[in-house]
Simulated assay, not measured.
Amino acid sequence: MANVRNTARPLSPHLGIYKWGPHMAVSIIHRATGSGMATVGTGLFVWWLVALAYGPDAYACFLDVFTLQSGQLNILGYVVGIGLSLSFFQHMASGVRHLFLDAGANFELRANKRSALTTFAFSILATAIFWVVLLEKAHG
């Protein structure tokens, strides 16, 4: 039997025909932030438990990294804290966006793009406000 290709049938979509947009980035970042928060959160929880089990010196080391000591936070504490809070706010905003999409709203292309960009703006703004308030309370 000959291998005959039916040219009347459409080809399946593939990555080459899609144009990148904010909606695609938000979807990918939503998955990455969820996985990242679970992984980093689990790692921090295990570190905390191990430090607690190993005694006062190990626990003091953990606290030195993740709490304010004489008004200063370790740079690792800032990086992890800001990264986790940015991930949290981005994941939350994207989740709310997906809630509206699941309800059947926001499929119009312009509104969909605008809501995708809004998740990025919200997460940056919410993270900045969160850290300003947190640091003001710690120093004030």
Rank of each mutant, 00 (worst) to 15 (best):
A32M: 10
S27F: 10
Y18A: 14
G21K: 04
T42Q: 00
N6M: 04
A32L: 14
G21P: 00
G43I: 08
G41T: 02
I17S: 13
T7Q: 12
A32Y: 01
S12Q: 10
P22T: 13
M37F: 07
R9I: 12
T42P: 00
T42W: 05
H14W: 06
G43S: 10
A25W: 14
L11G: 05
N6I: 07
A38M: 12
G41F: 08
L11D: 10
N6T: 03
A32W: 06
H23Q: 12
H23K: 09
R5P: 00
N6L: 06
L11Y: 04
K19G: 02
K19T: 05
S35M: 11
S35C: 08
L15P: 00
I17G: 10
T39F: 15
L11V: 09
A32D: 03
P22V: 05
S35T: 04
G16D: 02
T33N: 02
R31Y: 13
A32R: 06
P10I: 04
S35H: 08
A38T: 08
I29W: 14
I29H: 13
I17P: 01
M37Y: 09
H14I: 01
V26F: 02
P22M: 11
L15K: 09
G36H: 02
G21W: 00
A8E: 04
L15F: 10
P13F: 01
T33R: 03
L15H: 08
L15S: 08
G36A: 05
H14G: 06
G16R: 08
L15A: 13
T39I: 11
P10C: 03
H30Q: 04
T42I: 03
T33H: 00
T7N: 11
R31W: 14
G36S: 02
N6S: 05
H14T: 03
K19S: 09
Y18P: 00
A25N: 12
N6G: 01
M24S: 14
G43T: 12
P13K: 07
T33L: 03
W20K: 13
R9S: 14
H14K: 09
T42C: 02
S12I: 09
A8L: 07
V26L: 09
A38I: 06
G34R: 12
H30F: 07
M37V: 02
Y18K: 11
H23E: 11
R5L: 09
Y18F: 09
M37L: 15
A25C: 13
L15Y: 07
M24N: 15
S35Y: 12
P10Q: 01
N6R: 10
M24W: 10
P13I: 04
P10A: 03
H14C: 05
I28W: 15
R9D: 09
G41D: 04
V26K: 10
I28T: 15
H23P: 01
T33I: 05
T39V: 14
A8C: 03
P13C: 07
L15G: 13
I28M: 15
G16Q: 04
P10K: 04
R9W: 00
G43N: 08
N6A: 04
P10M: 02
S27Y: 08
H14E: 08
S35F: 13
V26Q: 11
I29A: 15
M37T: 03
W20N: 11
T42N: 01
Y18T: 07
L15W: 11
